[in-house]
Design a protein around this nucleic acid. Structure first.
Lengths: 187, 187
DNA sequence: GTCTATACTTGGATAGAC
DNA sequence: GTCTATCCAAGTATAGAC
């Protein structure tokens, strides 16, 4: 693990826990055990460091989603696998949390990384739904894009509601609720 | 409009735009035109001020939801009215945004205000669904609590996805998607 | 009730020695 | 590449005069 790597990992963790605006260079140094000078040697500043941390998050997320949706079985089964994967509910989504941060939205670089990743997930979900329609699992009337957006939104919103309640059961309710609705839509 | 009131209104606006952690007393003073001394005369500090601002948000939200769900017609119609209400999509939900803020979650007072309001909305939605089941609009198998959680989550998540994309259409997609699913569940 | 002055901490970054 | 010292702005609050 290089010093550079330690910085990125510490940043990843702090971005998750506190978001971008509330993560200070000082906190990153403390968490990584790296010295002041080293950080500014390896990175231009806080934003550049965050950019790399988010990049790493994106790679991880894409790999995970590919795995979830590649499972054998029905479209609904794949979506169930994706939604049902074990998550640290109360910490929230690494991407969803960032996007509430005004500083992130103001930074074109940071925001587009987050946006690209979330948009990519919706495209994957839409492909799974479209496939289900194709194979007669879902009715022709089911719009893959909209349905995928609803699924992705439910996931993001489930994090929000569970965090407000500080209770993972709320997350489960929301996810199960949308899976129930999808099951009703099955032919 | 009292000075006190000006402070609360300015805080409401800033909490919405920037969240709690990123809203400084200084910014509140600038936005309200109130002086330093006045603010600390009327409020103990930033947290007390935020508490009152959130309280006012909650009253507004409850009144609005009651109106939306009181409309004549089917359960689905009421939910459609609620979800379809005009919103400032890119600014996000006043409550959902706050809950991503670590400082808010750490403050029992602030968090519980947000939680109570979001939980209350879910109870109202569940009542509408339960009523729909009762009247034969939805099948007996539809669980009102879970369905309400899914609807509330979709709304929160739709804000998140639209903000990432900086595009209100994404919000529309998600909302329409869940309404489509509810329509499929109708008997 | 409101104003100005003050105080102390933290955020974010640079400078220059080693 | 890393360390320590330093800098200036901003955050949050208090003190005391008017």
């Amino acid at each position: 693990m290089s010093t550079r790597d330690d910085l990125v990992e510490a940043t990843r963790e702090l971005l998750w826990e506190r978001g971008y605006g509330a993560t200070s260079p000082r906190a990153i140094l403390d968490a990584s055990g790296v010295g002041q000078g080293s950080m500014y040697h390896h990175f231009r500043g806080k934003e550049a460091l965050a950019q790399e941390a988010i990049e790493r998050n994106a790679e991880e997320m894409r790999a995970q989603v590919v795995m979830d949706l590649a499972s054998e079985g029905s479209s609904l089964g794949k979506i169930r696998t994706y939604l049902g994967r074990k998550r640290e509910v109360l910490k929230g989504c690494r991407f969803g949390k960032l996007v509430q941060d005004a500083d992130v939205v103001k930074s074109p670089k940071l925001r587009s990384q987050v946006d690209d990743t979330l948009a990519w997930v919706q495209v994957q979900l839409a492909a799974v739904i479209a496939d289900g329609v194709e194979r007669g699992e879902f009715p022709r009337e089911l719009n893959p894009i909209r349905t995928a957006a609803a699924i992705a939104a439910t996931l993001q919103g489930a994090y929000v509601l569970a965090r407000a309640a500080q209770d993972p059961d709320v997350f489960e309710n929301a996810v199960e609720g949308v899976l129930d609705l999808l099951a009703f839509a099955q032919i």
